[in-house]
């Protein structure tokens, strides 16, 4: 019998980094910026938090829960915000090619993370190739005390660290802002047709900057959640893997709807780990096939969304294009 009670919470914690990453990317893409730097930004978000908490843990005897959360959080936000600003400056102000800029930021972010990750491992003098921040992680992972007592319900709904709930709230709020508020309407107009938005008196550059930087910060939180909660505060170089790309795939999967992203990310998280739950005996080759699941599903969804010709399900019309008012 497939063990749903233990499988679902694992799928959820797998899904949360993807959810944050894809919510961030959706906001960014709604403004017409195709930020392929998301994997790098999530990486930078993670390592920034690690750097902050590493020095905090080193400098005090016993960690204060509030500071242990606030310091890495602030570092993570700052790190990913700077990445978002860099992307905006290059693509909005200087009108550089968005694909090239994004890919460069990903390469940069991964290199940045591995460089400082390696330095911290050296500093900590650990024999393992990892930085271990158990005290901080315990603060991040603390769940409601009631979770233990409520059995299956508690395990399924209450057993997560606070960032998981924040992620879901951010996704739902983003969806509400995009679809129901004036700011969201303006944002969609900017992503669809910046010329029109400009003529309507909307500050196109400002919307692009704000949406992209907010998106970068949200995605960065995904990196932080991964290290502090999912990986129990253990930073190992390259352990984050290709979750950043999955987050971008998830944007297409959810047809640019963060509210859909909540369930879709859990599904992706489940697909990501399903190979551990399916008994495959000694045949390791079969396990490798199961590991393909998220990528196969993404490919199928891409084919399906391209075939459905509904205009609402298409990417923002000016996605990836720089906006220049005087261009004819």
């Amino acid at each position: 019998m497939f063990d749903f009670i233990s499988f679902i919470p694992r799928a959820v914690v797998q899904g949360i980094p993807l959810l944050l990453g894809s919510t961030g990317e959706t906001l960014t893409e709604k403004s017409g910026n195709l930020n392929l730097g998301i994997p790098g930004i999530m990486y930078v978000g993670g390592i920034s938090g690690v750097i902050g908490s590493f020095f905090y843990e080193q400098s005090v005897e016993t960690v204060q829960p509030f500071a242990a959360i606030a310091i890495p959080l602030a570092c993570c936000i700052l790190g990913s915000l700077l990445m978002g600003l860099l992307y905006c400056f290059l693509t909005v102000t200087l009108r550089a090619n968005q694909n090239v800029t994004g890919l460069a930021l990903t390469t940069f972010g991964v290199g940045f993370g591995n460089f400082f990750g390696g330095s911290l491992i050296k500093l900590s003098g650990s024999s393992l190739p990892s930085v271990i921040l158990s005290a901080t992680s315990n603060c991040f992972r603390r769940s409601l005390p009631a979770a233990e007592k409520l059995g299956a319900f508690g395990k399924l709904f209450l057993s997560y660290g606070f960032l998981a709930y924040v992620a879901v709230i951010i996704a739902l709020v983003s969806a509400w802002v995009i679809n129901r508020t004036r700011v969201g309407l303006h944002l969609r107009a900017v992503g669809e047709n910046p010329n029109t938005a400009d003529a309507a008196g909307i500050n196109v550059s400002r919307y692009k900057y704000v949406a992209t930087c907010t998106g970068a910060v949200i995605a960065g939180l995904g990196g932080l959640y991964y290290v502090m909660d999912y990986a129990s505060g253990v930073w190992t170089n390259d352990a984050f893997g290709d979750r950043g790309w999955l987050a971008i795939a998830l944007v297409i999967f959810t047809v640019w709807r963060p509210n859909v992203g909540v369930l879709a990310s859990f599904l992706f998280g489940g697909l990501y780990i399903v190979h551990m739950y399916i008994p495959s005996g000694m045949n390791l080759a079969v396990k490798e096939l199961y590991k393909m699941a998220p990528y196969v599903v993404t490919t199928i969804v891409l084919v399906l969304t391209s075939m459905r010709n509904k205009r609402e399900n298409q990417p923002p019309a000016s996605l990836g294009l720089p906006y220049f008012r005087e261009e004819r």
Binding site: L185, R188, A189, E192, A197, R311, E312, A317
Partner: peptide, 13 residues
């Protein structure tokens, strides 16, 4: 904006 409704376009900005 093509994917918006008439009303959404009219109140834009």
């Amino acid at each position: 904006v093509d994917v918006l409704t008439a009303a959404e376009n009219i109140v834009l900005g």
